[in-house]
Nucleic acid binder design. Structure first.
Lengths: 212, 212
DNA sequence: AAAAAAATCACCCCGCAGGATGATTTTTCA
DNA sequence: TGAAAAATCATCCTGCGGGGTGATTTTTTT
């Protein structure tokens, strides 16, 4: 089997060096480095790597823009986002734009390697611990509709995760409960919102500012 | 079988009278009339009708607020929205909030009766012609992400309908094509957006201003 | 301490969604 | 006019989503 080819994009040389060492040490092939989103896009065009590691915050073209550009032009390439911010805003945008992974910069080195490898396999890995922390630390703007829906705390978490685009299994994993439990919550949410499927629930959530 | 019980809410007496005549003539039971959303909500609490007909624009509490309040408190009651505006904004909010139907005030009388009856049966009827007209007449804000996604005109329509919460059958009906065709478009959309299911596509669409 | 609400989980069923493939027709554009 | 892109449709298959029911445990509230 050939080595997994990766491109690193971050505006800090130190970070790039650190990542390069980490990935190379794990047997991956770092095919190129970029200092901003535009360079990353150009490099991806030229080198056609398996995975692109993108910092969210970069000059010229930020990580989200680069993500969108890369995914729409080269859907086969997996993109992993790297950031210092654990915000639902970024996270959900990244997921919606097709990111294969989302990592905090202070994640364990092994975790980073693991996610990049999973991304190369075509898997989508959003760190559970990260999702949980985002759920708890992002205050929900008290909303009229939201108040009327009268969701329980756990239902609110489930709805947020639905609105991030997660399926029931992923939600179960994130909240550390069984799939059946998630399905029960999901049904209750549908009843309370008066919708009939998860897509409508997700739209409801986005429209009511639940995830940004 | 008992008559279908309906509440009418509109701030114009003329309209109420017209609707009352129309519905009564069709064998329905108009249990009450309201001049604003708050009254409609109160009436719904007292009378527990099968269907509430809500004008979108009303004083005190508008139709969308009333819709949300009624659906979250009494999910069993079907709500049909009545409006003079064919805007995606209202339409999608109404659908997301659980409206069973959405009608233009200049709709055919038979159409209005038909939709109210369908709503009473628990069906959800969004007029196809209305959807089509909304699709064509709502200009899409040219967006960076949208441009990059490079969707074809028909794919764009399908995506809009996904973002309104429609399933494949409803989309097929709206666009007057087969279910298979819709599924093909849907798959292409997923590829272009880099997402893996319709919920994520819907979120993408909402975030990129495709439906409001 | 008792009652109510929230959270947990299981099992069954069905249908639609999503993925893969292949093919034809229509429209657009060079 | 010919090539390319877009739109149309079919068939097969698998699995997840969504609905229905019932039940237990934990937490909150009164």
């Amino acid at each position: 089997m050939t080595k997994i080819r990766v491109i690193i994009a971050d505006d800090h040389g130190v970070v790039r060096a650190g990542l390069r060492g980490l990935l190379t040490g794990a047997g991956l092939d770092v095919a190129g480095e970029a200092g901003n989103g535009r360079e990353a896009l150009a490099l991806a065009r030229d080198l056609r790597p398996d995975v692109v590691l993108l910092d969210v915050r970069m000059p010229e073209m930020d990580g989200l823009q680069a993500l969108t550009a890369i995914k729409s032009e080269m859907p086969d390439i997996s993109v992993v986002m790297l950031t210092v911010y654990a915000s639902t805003e970024y996270l959900s945008r990244a997921i919606a734009a097709g990111a294969a992974g989302y990592l905090l910069k202070d994640a364990e080195p092994e975790e980073i390697v693991r996610v990049v490898q999973a991304a190369a396999e075509g898997d989508r890995v959003i760190d559970s611990a990260l999702l949980r922390s985002v759920l708890e630390h992002t205050p929900v703007v008290e909303n009229d509709a939201l108040h009327q829906a009268d969701l329980t705390p756990q239902e609110l978490r489930v709805l947020k995760l639905i609105a991030l685009g997660l399926n029931n299994d992923a939600i179960a994993e994130t909240l550390v409960v069984s799939r059946n439990t998630v399905k029960t919550h999901v049904r209750h949410i549908f009843e309370k919102l008066g919708v009939s499927d998860r897509t409508q629930a997700a739209i409801w959530a986005v429209r009511n500012g639940l995830v940004e």
